[in-house]
């Protein structure tokens, strides 16, 4: 079966999944409460009649199935509607915030992946050495420590105490953060990335290192490694060609999952660092029951996870000849 045909078939399978997930999300969201009540509860000057008029205006008085069909109709036309707050189109909100999240996440995921390669290999090779214990301790620290705690500690140390790095936002605007006395936009963006990316990298690094270390230890025990050694293949080639390819497969899955969960995985870190991304917007939208925005971001996350799964499966088939995409 051709690759194009395979992708087409997988894409068709995604349709019922996406619809199913959207129905569940819709129902849960409506069960959570009434956004109009939430928004006006603290305001005694608003009457029940005015509230009802607002509900009528946003179509919230219609039966839920009718509202869902209306949403779905917009969705298939690539339109997520307008935010209940401020009336900005959800498409526009998502597209401005999307790249900020992607930037932060891709940097962290790739850093975690790249750092974990030497760290995981080395700690597997020098099992039970001081370096292995150090790497493992950092990894366990990264897994166990909550991101919000680490984020706050980093802000306290590097922003408040030392004043080296910005504590919030993705850009220096309205003024540019001077780095080494230089005001440069790229440099400014990088400086803002350091703290949140450190937190996310450390959290992701931990899993990567543990996974690669375990995979490497398992692979190095295999007969085919001993057979390569018995054939006089050099240790370097055994390690980087024969062992690594076998040990890295679980890491590819993790990489695929991380990329899929990129947007969903960021809310806490984005909130701590006031990062203008989708994760923080998602949290804010949920707290305010901003239905169109919640649905919009939920659907973006859903589609990203499904696509990342597809890419992971294809990467698997590419690495391992025993797995066929058929």
């Amino acid at each position: 079966m051709g690759l194009g045909k395979y992708i087409a078939r997988r894409a068709i399978y995604m349709v019922p999944l996406i619809i199913g997930i959207s129905i569940v999300a819709f129902l849960v969201m409506y069960a959570a409460g009434d956004p109009i009540q939430l928004a006006t509860a603290g305001n005694p000057s608003i009457t029940e009649a005015q509230r009802n008029a607002l509900r009528e205006y946003y179509g919230l008085n219609d039966p839920i199935p009718m509202q869902y069909v209306r949403w779905l109709d917009h969705f298939v036309h690539a339109d997520f509607g307008k935010s209940l707050y401020g009336g900005r189109p959800v498409n526009e909100i998502i597209s401005t915030l999307f790249w900020e999240t992607i930037k932060l996440q891709l940097v962290s995921i790739l850093l975690a992946f790249l750092i974990s390669l030497p760290a995981g290999i080395y700690s597997a090779l020098k099992q039970r050495s001081a370096t292995d214990y150090t790497i493992s301790s950092i990894a366990i620290f990264g897994i166990s420590v909550p991101v919000f705690w680490l984020g706050i500690v980093l802000i306290l140390v590097f922003s408040f105490q030392l004043g080296w790095l910005p504590s919030a936002g993705a850009h220096g605007a309205p003024y540019l953060w001077p780095v080494f006395g230089i005001r440069n936009e790229t440099l400014d963006e990088l400086v803002h990335l350091v703290l949140p990316a450190t937190v996310l990298t450390l959290a992701g690094l931990a899993y990567n290192v543990r996974l690669l270390r375990a995979g490497m230890l398992d692979v190095l025990r295999q007969d085919y490694i001993m057979a390569a050694r018995a054939s006089g293949i050099s240790e370097r080639k055994i390690l980087y060609k024969y062992a690594l390819k076998n040990a890295i497969t679980p890491l590819i899955t993790l990489l695929g999952i991380s990329i899929g969960y990129m947007i969903a995985g960021a809310p806490i870190t984005e909130t701590v660092f006031s990062w203008p991304g989708l994760g923080r917007a998602y949290v804010a939208a949920t707290l305010r029951l901003d239905f169109p925005l919640i649905m919009g971001i939920t659907m973006i996350i859903t589609i990203m996870i499904l696509v990342a799964n597809l890419i992971t499966d294809m990467a698997y088939a590419w690495i391992d000849p025993r797995i066929s995409i058929e």
Partner: peptide, 29 residues
């Protein structure tokens, strides 16, 4: 190893690397 003294393993399935083509594995030696 492999040049003057060789070893054939008990289990051919586990002693061949599953991710590399036969020609590649043997030519490397």
């Amino acid at each position: 190893r492999g040049k003057k003294i060789s070893l054939i393993f008990q289990d051919p399935t586990s002693s061949l690397n599953p991710l590399f083509a036969i020609g590649d594995q043997l030519a490397d030696i």
